[in-house]
Design a protein around this nucleic acid. Sequence first.
DNA 1: CACTTGACCTGTCCGC
DNA 2: TGCGGACAGGTCAAGT
Length: 291
Amino acid sequence: MPELPEVETVRLGLRRLVVGEKVASVENDTEKSFPNERNAVDEFLLNATVIDVRRRAKVLLIDLSTNYTLMVHLKMTGQLVYVSEDVRFGAGHPNDSLVNQLPDRSTRVTITFTSGGKLYFNDQRKFGWMKLLPTQLVPEDPFMLKVGPEPLENSFTPELFIERLKRRKNTSIKAAILDQTVLAGIGNIYADEGLWGAMIHPSTPVKDVAVNDLKKLHTELVDVLKLSIEKGGSTDRNYVDAEGRRGSYIDFARVFRREGLACPRCSSPIEKIRVAGRGTHVCSQCQKRTQ
DNA sequence: CACTTGACCTGTCCGC
DNA sequence: TGCGGACAGGTCAAGT
């Protein structure tokens, strides 16, 4: 489930691997993965050089020399894996077993560069997408218009966080922080981890969470996102970075996927419940509803 | 407008 | 061993 740390890890890898590369060919297996017309692809992606790789929320923005941007959303099972020509011809790679199997049946789009390197867009569940848009129109994309602040920017203060939460005061705090219009980039893993850190029960209505606890939650969310980026993100099921490597945050998780195990703070067993329609990991001993 | 639920998909796991 | 159903969870559309 690529969330902010996973998408950021992919971005850092792609930035190192594909900036300066020129697109030689594009294979697209389904219109659903990459709905742009073939002539748009031919005109603005083919022969284009990658200039930069940016990120906004969970969306990757691959800027091209044609003044178009390839937007990519990995949703739940998307991967963007780059394999150089050297690796494809057996020069060795830290993840030989994985990258040498590409393309596989989850591969939806393959972009081949003039260097011989290939960028594979794999997506088992087909929820992800790629689309080409003029770079200057990216901010006008409907999602970009409504998405909330970037949690890792300095402008994301506790005060701004609390202000943004005012639009969702009757819902659960977990549903509120998963809402991408409140803030960008939080998904199920970091919602559970942040709420545990702030000792807030996920089902607490936003209006019942004390201001000091919201400030604590702000700190915990920012810290857990930064820590996860350091660890290369979380590989829960099939997330991998731009070189096919797994992330290790899950080894440091305090509650996520730890149901039945001891809470690191109070040793009570972690429970798995359902909040906001999602599987939710909680220590009911130290995450009490506040008021 | 605030809020909740179902749909989109496919692979995996669990119980029978 | 096979099979049906529940489950995984990012986002949007449609519902109340």
